[in-house]
Amino acid sequence: MQPNINVVSLVSVGRHPQSGRARRAEQDGQAVELGLKLAGKALTVVHAGNAQEPVLRQYAGMGLPSLTVLAQESNCDALPVLVSFLKDKPIDVVLTGVRAESGESSGMLPYLLAEQLGWSLVPRVADIIGVQGDEVELLLALPRGQRRAVKVKLPIIASVDNAAQEARQTAFGPGLRAQFNVLTVESVVDESASRWQINAAKPRPKRLKVVKAKTAADRMKAATAKPMGSGGKIMKDETAAEKAQAIFDLLLEEKVVR
């Protein structure tokens, strides 16, 4: 459907939020999905890391005939090997997730790639509308389902938002049979990351409502008052108009109607 453009999707090892198990990362899966939409079977999918990782088969199961792995240890920086892989190749679009589900999850990788390769970066893409000549038109995902259209010159690096087309189902058979092109690369250990202390996430304290009352009586009242609404107000005998007004007031108060 598109004029011949070269698309690369970068994939990483995700982490299931409930079980913590390795999985196909959601946004990376969507990056592959968008890549397949743009380039079909000609899509190049690249992973920097362990070539034996079983999760890669889940990406391959989306119907990829092959997958390129830049083999390196998990403590290495993905950036330099990706830069040297992408540099000087006739690539038009590189798709990544917004933030990795494992590791630092800083979301810097696409920005650093764009900076080092000198390409444009488009954040949080929901869809790619089309390519005309050396220009591509994209839809950006904004909060609450809003969209913004943007035009940009190729080549670009785009991070794919959760709002993009969901990744297709991964099939066991094709995943099993996909070819892995494992490239040996010169990788660099991420030194500064090795100095970090990493612990399991502590639950963040919920912010308390601090009551600034002048008198003890007011503070007591604030501390013992029931939170509004939790009582559950029931309107039974009012007219329909009054009932609707009460609902509408609540909607206004919550600022969902604007």
């Binding site: 409930q18 189902q169 099939a171």
Partner: peptide, 30 residues
């Protein structure tokens, strides 16, 4: 259809993905 085409309809794909990742069909924390 499922193993080769990856074409389980409706919630099928999600349910299978949940089972793989959490060992239960609804993706609850194990």
């Amino acid at each position: 259809l499922t193993l080769e085409k990856g074409d389980t309809p409706n919630k099928g794909a999600q349910v299978l993905e949940n089972i793989i990742a959490t060992d239960n069909p609804n993706g609850y924390a194990p």
